[in-house]
């Protein structure tokens, strides 16, 4: 594993105990964490950009998973946050399922072709892999998630 990947997905990108009441609440709470992590400069701007993307089509891809994401000028470094929410949230998902597994992706507007973007693309592709999804949903700890994503 290269150092980029270790830097890209570490403990601080994983939230196993999110307690959001709604989709918007979840995105807002996670935006604040990204701001605290130093990945974005302004959580309110980022929040609005992610909701804008959500307004175009849902990012609830089914199977209780959502991948809210935004290209935003508030993003300093491309990154992602993984979160498990304590309750199932309405997300207008493609299959009608509610969501408790969230991958929030943050990308700067002018970003192209960097390592982190490649990681996000690869991770997105992996979400079509039934085995990968199963292990993500069964994971109980931050370490479990790190291991699955880094493999």
């Amino acid at each position: 594993m290269n150092s980029n990947l270790v830097d890209f997905i570490s403990e601080k990108n994983i939230v196993m105990d999110l307690h959001a009441e709604t989709r918007d609440d979840a995105i807002h709470q996670l935006a604040l964490i990204l701001e605290k992590n130093g990945s974005i400069s302004n959580s309110e701007d980022f929040y609005k950009d992610v909701l804008y993307r959500e307004s175009l089509t849902t990012t609830g891809i089914g199977n209780n998973i959502a991948i809210p994401h935004g290209k935003s000028k508030s993003v300093i470094n491309s990154t992602m946050l993984f979160a498990k929410n304590s309750k199932l949230l309405d997300w207008n998902s493609l299959d009608g399922s509610k969501v408790n597994v969230i991958f929030l992706m943050a990308v700067p507007i002018e970003s192209k072709g960097d390592e982190h973007l490649k990681m996000l693309a690869k991770l997105s592709g992996k979400l079509m892999d039934d085995e990968f999804v199963k292990s993500i949903k069964e994971a109980k700890t931050t370490e479990d998630i790190l291991k699955i994503i880094r493999d």
């Binding site: 993307r53 994401h69 290209k71 690869k122 997105s124």
Partner: peptide, 16 residues
Amino acid sequence: IAGIAHTYMAAENLKK
């Protein structure tokens, strides 16, 4: 639209 996620999910699902 964003070119971040759905492009790559759709590609993988078509291949699968």
